[in-house]
Write a protein that binds this DNA or RNA. Structure first.
Lengths: 160, 160
DNA sequence: CTCATTGCAAATAATTTGCATGTAA
DNA sequence: TTACATGCAAATTATTTGCAATGAG
């Protein structure tokens, strides 16, 4: 699979995916006349090198370990920006926290969520992708993203 | 109990579905030693005779048109109760409001959401249901519910 | 220079909770 | 009579916003 070598901090997305995200963001910012600041750079870099579904809290903690100055609101504002230009997707898994994940068109994964331990498992199924496109077409929708979440009790928690 | 004929306000779920929901709730309340009160009855009746995905706000307004006394917190508490016993499912469609819908096993519908006008369209696809069961089995999950949401721009909004 | 951006703290918004009082069972 | 339930208001939690100071272009 991923031909990419190791990303920096943690097992984040492949380098190609991150570069693509950065390109989209750059174009969007240019179009809107937005400025590139230290804060935005750190936040975006951190987000891009982070595994899936980070909450703002988690992200802020990571960002601050790099740069103490960054404020709470800036993380919110930057993530909103990423969502606006389509680089990130917002998700809520029912535990009250909003999470963000990289909108990666090359990896269509979805989630199994254990309602007992709150654990999140990813799955992928190409058949569902195909059906989704079909449904969107049927209803005249231009599809932008999707959420497919299965809620239940994971194997571990069933042994109660 | 209530072999009540037509629901009051609007085109809610079929009578059989509502009776089933009530039976589950009754059993749950009995098991837990919970009491049947006027408020709970009005809230549950209103919820059961309401079309899909009501927000707390909407529900409270409807409930109050029947019974002015009912408080905000009671609606929250009762809906939480319904979710606990599996009669209702909580959903968040990204507009900041938590919505509830009847967990109706006989009608597996999912949602197309227009990110421009916030309109919600329902769809149903049996093939996805089958695949979901398969995935849950593969990962050792006992499936309780699911969310499958397609986000995009609806036909109307595309003509901008 | 000019205007977007930032950090902070205050403001919102949604939901939960403490508690005195009411009330099913 | 004995908890459970309710309404209210206050408390939490998550997110947004106003504003003076800062800094990119």
């Amino acid at each position: 699979m991923s031909p990419a070598p190791a990303p920096d901090g943690e097992s984040g997305p492949a380098a190609g995916v991150r570069d693509h995200a950065r390109a989209i963001l750059r174009a969007y910012m240019e179009k809107k006349g937005l400025r590139s600041t230290d804060q935005r750079r750190v936040i975006v870099d951190t987000f891009l090198s982070t595994a899936d579904h980070v909450s703002i809290e988690e992200l802020l903690a990571r960002v601050r370990s790099h740069d103490r100055r960054v404020g709470y609101a800036t993380v919110y504002r930057t993530l909103k920006l990423l969502a606006e230009c389509g680089v990130a997707n917002e998700r809520q898994f029912g535990d009250g926290l909003t999470r963000f994940e990289l909108a990666d068109e090359t990896s269509h994964h979805d989630h199994l969520i254990c309602t007992a331990c709150h654990g999140i498992t990813e799955f992928e199924d190409e058949r569902v992708e195909v059906i989704q496109d079909e449904i969107a077409t049927r209803y005249g929708f231009r599809l932008r993203s999707h959420k497919h979440e299965l809620y239940g009790i994971c194997g571990n928690c069933q042994q109660t």
